[in-house]
Design a protein around this nucleic acid. Structure first.
Length: 280
DNA sequence: CGATTATCCTGTGCGC
DNA sequence: TGCGCACAGGATAATC
C-alpha cells in the first residue's frame, strides 16, 4: 500500500523515464478513475511536455509545459507502470498515457480507490512547481520529510487521539500510512496508542528523528512490498524495505530490540503492532 | 470541535 | 477442493 517511500520511489522513476518527453495521447477507460471533473478534460494535456514530477505526502503531481497539473493518488491498490505499446494490458488498467520516445505510462488499480485529476495553482507564480500550491492539496499537513518538531508539537498538543491515529491523519502530517506509522513509533520508542498530546519535548524530538530516518531508509530500499505483492515500482520490481520492518506484520515474532514478542493492539477498526517493552 | 465510524472496492487467505 | 466471508486500509463524508 503505497505510502511516502513508495510514492517517492515512483516519482523518481517517473522523472527519469518521462521528463522532457511530449505526451502524444492518453485514454481513460476507468469510470471512477477521473471523478472530480469530466475525464475528457484530460485532453488538455495532449502535446504537452512533462517538465517535472512533484510529491506532497502520497500525492504525485505532474507539471507540464503549459496547461494544468495532473494529480495522481494511488490509494490502496493503484499502480503506475511503465510499458511498451505492444505489451499486454493488465486487468484493471484504467488509464494509458503515451509519450513521444518514452513509451507508455499505465495506471492500474483493481480497487478503484485511486484517482487522477487536473488542478491549477490558486495563485499562479509561473515558476512554482510546488504541489502545495494546488487547492485540492491545501488541506494536507507538512510533508513527513519536511515536518519539524515544532510542526508536530503544535499538531499534537492537547489531542487525545492515539498517536498513530494522528500520524496517519494527512492533515496533521502528510505521507505516513499504516506500515510506516508502526515502524516510526517503534523507532521513536513510543507506544502508538499514547494520546498524541502526552508527548514531551524529548518524545517529539525522537519522533521527528525516527520519521526522517525510517522514511529515508525505506526510500533507499525502494519501498515496502508486502506478501500481497501490490506495490511495484514503475518497472514492476518489488521494494526491499519489508525485510527491515521491525514490528509491522510481526505479531508473535521477537522484537528486534529486546526479543520479546511483538503484540498487535486494536482500537476500534484500527490496529498497531508494538513492542510493549521497548515502547512507552 | 474532535473523535469515531461507515463507505468506496476487489483480491486474498482463512476456516469450515 | 470449494465455498463464504472477514480482512486489508487511504481518504472523505457522516455521525456522535
Amino acid at each position: 500500500l503505497p505510502e511516502l517511500p513508495e510514492v517517492e520511489t515512483v516519482r523518481r522513476d517517473l522523472l527519469r523515464l518521462y521528463a522532457g518527453h511530449r505526451l502524444k495521447s492518453l485514454s481513460v477507460s476507468g469510470r471512477r478513475t477521473v471523478r472530480r471533473h469530466s475525464p475528457e478534460q484530460l485532453g488538455a494535456l495532449r502535446e504537452k511536455i512533462l517538465l517535472s514530477v512533484g510529491r506532497h505526502g502520497k500525492y504525485l503531481v505532474f507539471f507540464w509545459e503549459g496547461g494544468p497539473s495532473l494529480v495522481a493518488h494511488l490509494r490502496m491498490s493503484g499502480q503506475l507502470l511503465a510499458a511498451s505499446p505492444g505489451d499486454p494490458v493488465a486487468p484493471h488498467t484504467h488509464a494509458v498515457f503515451s509519450f513521444d520516445g518514452a513509451g507508455e505510462l499505465r495506471f492500474v488499480d483493481p480497487r478503484t480507490f485511486g484517482e487522477l485529476f487536473l488542478s491549477t495553482p490558486a495563485a499562479a507564480p509561473p515558476m512554482a512547481s510546488s504541489p502545495s500550491a494546488l487547492p485540492e492539496l491545501a488541506h494536507l499537513g507538512p510533508d513527513a520529510l519536511m515536518a519539524t518538531a515544532r510542526d508536530l508539537s503544535c499538531a499534537l498538543a492537547g489531542r487525545h487521539a492515539p498517536l498513530k491515529a494522528l500520524l496517519v491523519d494527512q492533515r496533521v502530517i502528510a505521507g505516513i500510512g499504516n506500515i510506516y506509522a508502526d515502524e516510526i513509533c517503534w523507532k521513536a520508542r513510543l507506544r502508538p496508542d499514547r494520546p498524541g498530546g502526552s508527548l514531551d519535548q524529548a518524545d517529539l524530538r525522537r519522533l521527528v528523528r525516527a520519521t526522517r530516518s525510517v522514511l529515508l531508509a525505506a526510500i533507499a530500499a525502494r519501498g515496502s512490498t508486502l506478501a500481497d505483492r501490490r506495490y511495484r515500482d514503475l518497472g514492476g520490481s518489488a521494494g526491499a524495505y519489508q525485510l527491515e520492518h521491525r514490528v509491522y506484520g510481526r505479531a508473535g515474532l521477537p522484537c528486534a530490540g529486546c526479543g520479546r514478542p511483538v503484540e498487535r493492539l486494536r482500537w476500534g477498526a484500527k490496529s498497531a503492532y508494538v513492542c510493549g517493552s521497548c515502547q512507552a
